[in-house]
């Protein structure tokens, strides 16, 4: 019994190490002064960060990724929140079909969706000349994650709350605005966070749909890694991790604590 517990503990611990190790390694490499990470490390240096921030292509890519993620999350909000409301409160006979359609971008292989979109854009003549296709691609893969978050938030509030508001004289819009929305706000913000991260980290869609001459941060890292080894990418990766982490902390400040009020 004791032995079993110990064994389980050891197994679990090593899996946690396994999970964190490559991520930690990237962060460490970004601060390493040498080109190759050695053990023991050669020394601390910020020169890869200097490289990163001094590189116009990296800066452009970071800006595009950020804007792309914000826009994708915002557009996905407008699409996914009503969809979740419809699914949880009103959908009738076609309920499951509706859910499957909404989750389709998640259920289908992302790379296949990217290929399908690429061909489609060329067929209808948008191609990849403008960034529109890229933005649309990001919106579509963000929807399912957003939808799932808002759906579960809606399931957690009783429909009788909305009915109570209606019985007190609120129209359906007022009862949504005054009762439903404040209660699902954490879910909506979480959904937006998810959408932001999904878009910010995406490669498959960007790989095929990025416009000529533009690139996103993960794409830039991907391209660097394919052709050469350069610790500047480690700095870029660490910055990317920091940005996601920043978004998470921001959201936690926004709703994590506020949600404790009731």
């Amino acid at each position: 019994m004791k032995g079993g517990k110990l064994l389980l503990g050891a197994a679990v611990t090593s899996v946690y190490v396994f999970l964190m190790l490559p991520i930690a390694i990237v962060v460490i490499a970004s601060f390493n002064s040498g080109k190759y990470l050695k053990f023991p490390p050669e020394g601390f240096s910020l020169r890869w960060y200097a490289n990163f921030f001094g590189s116009q292509p990296f800066m452009d890519a970071t800006l595009l990724s950020f804007v792309l993620a914000v826009v994708a999350a915002a557009v996905a909000t407008v699409i996914a929140v009503p969809a979740a409301l419809y699914y949880v409160r009103h959908a009738g006979r076609w309920r499951e079909t509706f859910r499957m359609l909404t989750l389709a971008p998640l259920l289908l292989p992302e790379i296949l969706t990217a290929i399908a979109l690429l061909f489609f854009y060329y067929q209808i003549g948008i191609g990849t000349k403008s960034a529109l296709g890229l933005y649309l691609g990001h919106v579509v893969i963000c929807i399912p994650f957003f939808f799932l978050q808002v759906t579960s938030a809606l399931y957690n509030i009783s429909p009788s709350l909305e009915e109570a508001a209606r019985s007190l004289g609120a129209t359906s819009w007022t009862s949504f605005r005054r009762v439903t929305l404040p209660l699902i706000k954490p879910g909506v913000i979480n959904g937006a966070l998810f959408a932001f991260i999904i878009s910010f980290d995406n490669v498959s869609i960007s790989l095929l749909l990025k416009g000529v001459g533009t690139t996103t941060l993960p794409m830039q890292v991907f391209d660097y890694l394919r052709w050469d080894f350069d610790p500047t990418t480690a700095a870029a990766s660490t910055v990317s991790i920091a940005m996601t982490l920043g978004a998470v902390i921001l959201v936690d400040r926004l709703v994590g604590l506020r949600a404790m009020r009731y």
């Binding site: 999970l19 190790l21 490559p22 990237v26 980290d201 993960p218 480690a234 991790i241 998470v248």
Partner: peptide
């Protein structure tokens, strides 16, 4: 800890393995 790798893009996680395994 289980969730956090999901917050880090696939490229970056693969990169970590490259640094280790190259």
């Amino acid at each position: 800890l289980v969730l956090s790798p999901l917050l880090v893009g696939v490229v970056i996680r693969s990169f970590g393995w490259i640094i280790l395994l190259a």
